[in-house]
Write a protein that binds this DNA or RNA. Structure first.
Length: 890
RNA sequence: GCGAGAGUGGCGGAACGGUAGACGCAGUCGACUCAAAAUCGACCGACGCAAGUCAUGGGGGUUCGAAUCCCCCCUCUCGCACCA
């Protein structure tokens, strides 16, 4: 899904030669990843290690690992490397743990970039996409991922989207999708609908023309029908990040409030009242104006007869449809001159404004303004000199003197200046009473409102899944009959004309109505690409099935046990997929409601950016770094400004090509560095030094194996202190790495392996014919090879095959190691001794020592003893195995 | 603007409320070498001769004890419905 990139460039392996030729010459045995990586990839492939059946019969517990599938931009980028490495660690680890692991890969292959390529370079979107897929597949395969490639598909392939069209028609039958008018960003020059990202400062990115809002008939997916269920079920998603659940809950946005009607003083174009939704009916007495959205029917009515109102509405139309733009814009309004009555205060009347910050899509498209207790209303009121009457008194304030300044008071308080509501607690109690009164008077009622809107998924684009309906003048919307599916995109298309490509096609849209046979037209909109990714995880279970899904396969494999992807998908993609799963349950395709049992969200990959004095962005390989952090341009030696570390992007030229890294250092090095740098849910910085460090470690591990003792034939007669120590390190490492892998703390797993390899190297130096230590070294080397296997699978195979020359199998098929707790146990523990919480010394005690003896030992520690002399100890805190704290008087 | 996160040495980070800085990178010194690379060893938060003091974005608080829990603030990042 992540976007970006273009066709791969020629790769330069000069840097690899620079760093390694000398190494090979001087160093002797050396791990040759260039030979080893393809060899082991072929071995896994030949054994079919990673293939599983749609409906397995081996009785193994199932585990479905899925990473968000990529958009085929043409090259993999570091974000992909990170994503797929994380998933591969999970997949390989779970396999070793005895699970049958489903780990598929495919392509999110429809989307705007292919059309941009068509427009800018005249290449057909399909050709462009399929070439990109071929290039990216080759790059991914070099990473040594434990994928079942037999399941690969691309969403732009009719063999995939035919099922999506069937799903659409199933949804249509059950009225889960429907058609209505909705606003879009319109580029009047290009005659096209613009995506939000194509609107730059209110103008079309290609034409530069001011963008307008325009209404079009569009298809919608009835996601709001599921809103209560989508919200409630978040509680059950215990293995999702808390923050994603909170973001989704806020997005769904359940609120309790009231709908109430304000009567207009005089009817306007037949409109006699304005309905408002509010979450704060308790503040109704603090009203100072009523505001409606520029798209509100009343605003349209005013615009029809008042040029000033029309001008203001037209201006708002040029703002685009993005909520971020609307809400960040300066609050502006137009006084219509209309007035409304107050539901509770007889005789009071308030002005009606059209305001640019009122959203037509939320509530009723109209609000009552209570500036004292809503920040946006306050800013608006201050700008236009409207009254700010306070009606909620903060605790401890004096009602006679309380004034609202620059900040609205939105917290709990007591109602004042509000007639029958006075003295009630706000908001809770006063809300109930106000709603009861609205209902008694018949002007409003308490309602639950949702922020979530139905998902408009029509797109006026070529490179997407055709919507399988036909518009007939007499029969209306007619589904394409099942036997005529798929509706395939035409290949002979013309991108040179403005407007919709499918609309312009000379023949494609002209068909006979399936019902009456009269001349009719195909729907020429296509589906949002989010639809493609809302059910692909289900298709992966039976990718070759003749029907949408094979029930036995999806019932076996779903839900996805571990889903991994970027935090940028925390809301939309995940919410759409959750809702689609429910819809597919309703239409009988699935038996589950939640598609992803566990979710992990990774951080971005960043890199320093470089800028020449004249402002040009420089790519990392045009820059030479110095030890003090300064940098110069390689060509010419001019000083370079080292800029911020930020997300890799083409515009800042701070991207690193994974293909080049794999050429220079191998896939295992890339995987190892990307795992070692930092916790996977945080942004990571790619550095050349870090990659080189990871490369050196692969060589170091290999050397340890090259100098390994021969495989021992039996247990030694005795265990020396050093041998016991190494075995302890081995079994502790097994335990610690396992724990770290289970909790996604891959950087910690890496650190434990570094520690472990340091212990092995130390033992190697100390091994002077100690049979017990040689035995322990062999055990340790075998362990380290198997512990690194999920992370550096090729190196692990190479190490293991050298330790066991006759071994015919692969590490990828071996079970995970179990730590022997009795060997891992410490012989002595260090207890920190504090006085008043400050560290004053440490004591060594045996793990079984009782409290009295530990306290005695702590008090006897020379430094502590001196400080305690003459002091009265009033409390002794003892945490076994950790600390002693003496609390002294005075 | 609204919603959600993050902030610990020169850098990435570790740390069930219990010895802050594991491990790695960079750096310094040494060994090996004609030399360099690679490798191996030692050192490596700040201040201080030392005892020690100060240190986890800033300011408060809870606790015997806070990077960790609570409140306020600052900075950066992600999302905001047609990018994927």
């Amino acid at each position: 899904m992540p976007a970006g990139g273009q066709l791969r460039a020629d790769q330069d392996d000069g840097a690899y030669r620079r760093m390694s030729d000398a190494t090979v010459a001087a160093e002797g045995p050396r791990y040759d990843y260039r030979a080893a990586e393809p060899k082991w990839q072929a071995a896994w492939d030949a054994r079919g290690c990673f293939r599983v059946a749609d409906v397995p019969t081996d009785g193994k517990p199932k585990y479905y690992v899925l990473e968000m599938f990529p958009y085929p931009s043409g090259k993999i980028h570091m974000g992909h490397v990170r994503n797929y490495t994380l998933g591969d660690v999970v997949a390989r680890y779970k396999r070793a743990r005895g699970f049958a692991v489903l780990h598929p890969m495919g392509w999110d292959a429809f989307g705007l970039p292919a059309e941009n390529a068509a427009i800018e370079r005249g290449v057909h979107p399909g050709k462009w996409t399929w070439e990109n897929i071929a290039a990216m597949r080759a790059e991914l395969q070099r990473m040594g991922l434990s994928l079942d490639w037999s399941r690969e598909f691309a969403t732009c392939d009719p063999s995939y989207y035919v099922h999506q069209q069937r799903l659409f028609l199933d949804f249509l039958k059950q009225e889960l999708v429907y058609r209505r008018e909705s606003w879009v960003n319109w580029d009047p020059v290009d005659g096209t609908v613009l995506a939000n990202e194509q609107v730059i400062d209110g103008r079309g990115w290609r034409s530069g023309a001011p963008v307008e809002k325009k209404q079009l008939a569009q298809w919608f997916f009835r996601i709001t029908a599921d809103a209560p269920e989508l919200l409630a079920a978040l509680d059950g998603l215990e293995n999702w990040p808390e923050r994603v659940r909170v973001m989704q809950a806020n997005w769904i946005g359940r609120s309790e409030g009231a709908r109430l009607r304000f009567a207009l003083a005089a009817p306007e174009a037949g409109i006699t009242e304005v309905e408002v939704y509010t979450t704060r009916p308790d503040t109704l007495f603090g009203m100072s104006f009523l505001a409606i959205a520029p798209e509100h029917p009343l605003a349209a009515a005013m615009a029809a007869r008042d040029p000033a109102a029309a001008a203001f509405v037209a201006e708002c139309r040029r703002m685009g449809t993005s909520e971020a733009v609307i809400e960040a814009a300066e609050k502006r309004g137009h006084d219509t001159g209309l007035r409304v009555a107050h539901p509770f205060i007889a005789g009071a009347s308030y002005p009606v404004w059209i305001a640019n910050f009122v959203l037509m899509e939320y509530g009723t498209g109209a609000i009552f303004g209570c500036p004292a207790h809503d920040q946006r209303d306050l800013e608006f009121a201050r700008k236009y000199g409207l009254a700010v009457p306070p009606v909620v008194l903060p605790p401890g304030e004096d009602a006679a003197r309380f004034q609202v300044g620059a900040k609205a008071f939105v917290d709990d308080g007591t109602i004042i200046n509000s007639g029958f509501l006075d003295g009630l607690a706000a908001p809770a109690e006063a809300k109930r009473v106000a709603i009861a009164e609205l209902e008694r008077r018949g002007v409003g009622q308490g309602v639950v409102n949702w922020r979530l809107r139905d998902w408009g998924f029509s797109r006026q684009r070529y490179w997407g899944c055709p919507i399988p309906v036909i518009h007939c003048r007499s029969c209306g919307v007619v589904p394409v009959p099942a036997e005529q599916l798929p509706v395939v995109l035409p290949d002979d298309v013309d991108f040179s004309r403005p407007g919709k490509v499918l609309d312009h096609h000379p023949t494609w849209k002209h068909v006979a109505c399936p019902t009456c046979g009269a001349a009719a037209e195909r729907e020429t909109d296509t589906l949002d690409t989010f639809v493609d990714s809302s059910w692909y995880f289900a298709r992966f279970c039976s990718p070759h099935a003749a029907e949408v899904v094979d029930r036995a396969a999806v019932d076996h494999w779903l839900p996805v046990d571990q889903y991994i992807g970027g935090i940028e998908h925390a809301i939309l993609h995940l919410l759409y997929a959750r809702s689609f799963t429910r819809a597919m349950h309703k239409t009988g395709h699935l038996s589950i409601d939640e598609p992803f049992a566990a979710l992990f969200t990774q951080g971005m990959v960043t890199h320093a950016s470089f800028r020449a004095a004249d402002g040009r962005w420089l790519s990392p390989d045009e820059v030479e770094m110095h030890g003090d952090g300064s940098a110069v341009e390689k060509a010419g030696g001019a000083a370079v400004q080292v800029g911020r570390i930020e997300k890799m992007s083409k515009s800042k030229r701070n991207t690193i090509d994974p293909g080049e890294i794999i050429d220079r250092y191998g896939a295992d090095t890339a995987r190892w560095f990307i795992l070692s740098d930092n916790p996977p849910d945080r942004d990571m910085e790619w550095t050349e030094a870090g990659a080189v460090g990871a490369f050196r470690f692969t060589q170091r591990l290999f050397r340890l194996v090259e100098s390994a003792p021969a495989a021992p034939s039996g247990l030694p007669a005795a265990w020396s202190v050093a041998a016991r120590g190494l075995r302890r390190a081995t079994h502790r490492a097994i335990g610690a790495v396992t724990e770290a892998l289970e909790s996604f703390s891959y950087n910690v797993a890496v650190a434990r392996i570094y520690e472990f390899s340091n212990a092995i190297a130390e033992a190697e130096r100390g091994d002077g014919g100690d049979a017990g230590l040689a035995w322990a070294r062999f055990e340790a080397l075998e362990a380290v090879a198997r512990l690194v296997a999920p992370m550096m699978p090729h190196l692990a195979e190479e190490m293991y095959s050298r330790l066991h020359p006759g071994f015919e199998g692969v590490v990828a098929d071996l079970p995970w190691l179990e730590a022997d707790q009795s060997l891992a146990a410490a012989e002595m523990v260090t207890i920190a001794v504090q006085i008043l919480g400050k560290l004053r010394g440490t004591v060594e005690v045996s793990p079984g020592a009782d409290e009295t003896s530990v306290l005695a030992a702590a008090a006897a520690e020379p430094h502590v003893e001196r400080l305690l002399e003459g002091k009265r100890v009033i409390k002794r805190i003892y945490v076994p195995g950790r600390i002693v704290n003496f609390v002294i008087a005075g």
